[in-house]
Design a protein around this nucleic acid. Structure first.
Lengths: 152, 152
DNA sequence: GATGAAACACTCTAGCA
DNA sequence: TGCTAGAGTGTTTCATC
């Protein structure tokens, strides 16, 4: 379904989706732009390419309150989806993972300031499915979201 | 430096960077494509737009071993940058955050399988600056990396 | 600093071999 | 898949507001 050419195309696009089709062709060894075009559109249809987005420097935009929240819930695994859906619709939430262990959810949030952050915490603490939440301020973003090192 | 128009442009681009300039113009209320073009290029120069990338569905590409690693180091804060640099160059690492509290670093990794994951853990355990690491398998990705809910 | 127009090169894509 | 033709897109320049 996804062959070696597709993988090479994806490797380029996940780092930079503004590369001309012609140039992609050269790099992957498929020299017609139309062939690349058709493959990319197929990958979008199949949902393998989910989106093409601009990654922003949120610190430069004065989002200085990045935090990671660890959530422990009252109920067991079956509630993962239900509680998960509530968590992911909280404001300023970038990612939510359900993990196994003493912590149930890990949430990444990007906030402009403490007030924004407290807005999340207020909603979080009002959810009675939640037993306990630990929120940690990110002191340094050592590596921002970046999939370039992933080898397909 | 970044005005309301820029913020509106960024709001569009962080969700979809493939929107024609003309259409962006209509949406933000700046009706010439050339004005939008100049602003976007300025935002790139300033590093506010870091990259334009394709977001992929890694689960569909059989990356079934997503994990979050909590790292506690032996040394104090000053080592954050040094150890951080080592951590971010580990294979298959998507993000690294230095946080305050009992855990020092949170690492997000995306792996195809257990072997790939163990490759990271091997390198991690061989670093003597690290006191302890807890790795958690992601059971469900409730919300994958997505900045669309962030209000600029 | 924005607009609209014009000109140009570049880019994408549909149809067909 | 490759080729080609036509439509669409981004960028620059200009006069004007």
């Amino acid at each position: 379904m996804v062959d070696e050419f597709d993988r090479r195309i994806l490797t380029i696009l996940k780092n930079d989706c503004d590369v001309p089709l012609k140039e992609i062709g050269k790099k992957v060894g498929l020299f017609s732009a139309s062939a690349i075009s058709k493959r990319i559109n197929k990958l979008k249809e199949d949902g393998i390419i989910k989106k093409q987005v601009a990654l922003l420097d949120y610190e430069k935009l004065n989002f200085d309150f990045i935090s990671i929240i660890f959530v422990k819930t009252k109920y067991h695994k079956d509630y993962a989806q239900i509680i998960g859906n509530k968590l992911k619709s909280l404001p300023n939430v970038v990612a939510v993972f359900f993990i196994l262990g003493d912590i149930d959810f890990v949430i990444l949030t990007v906030n402009r300031n403490r007030q924004d952050f407290l807005r999340i915490m207020e909603k979080l603490t009002s959810m009675d499915e939640i037993e306990r939440s630990d929120s940690r301020v990110v002191a340094y973003t050592i590596k921002d979201i970046d999939f370039s090192s992933i080898e397909l």
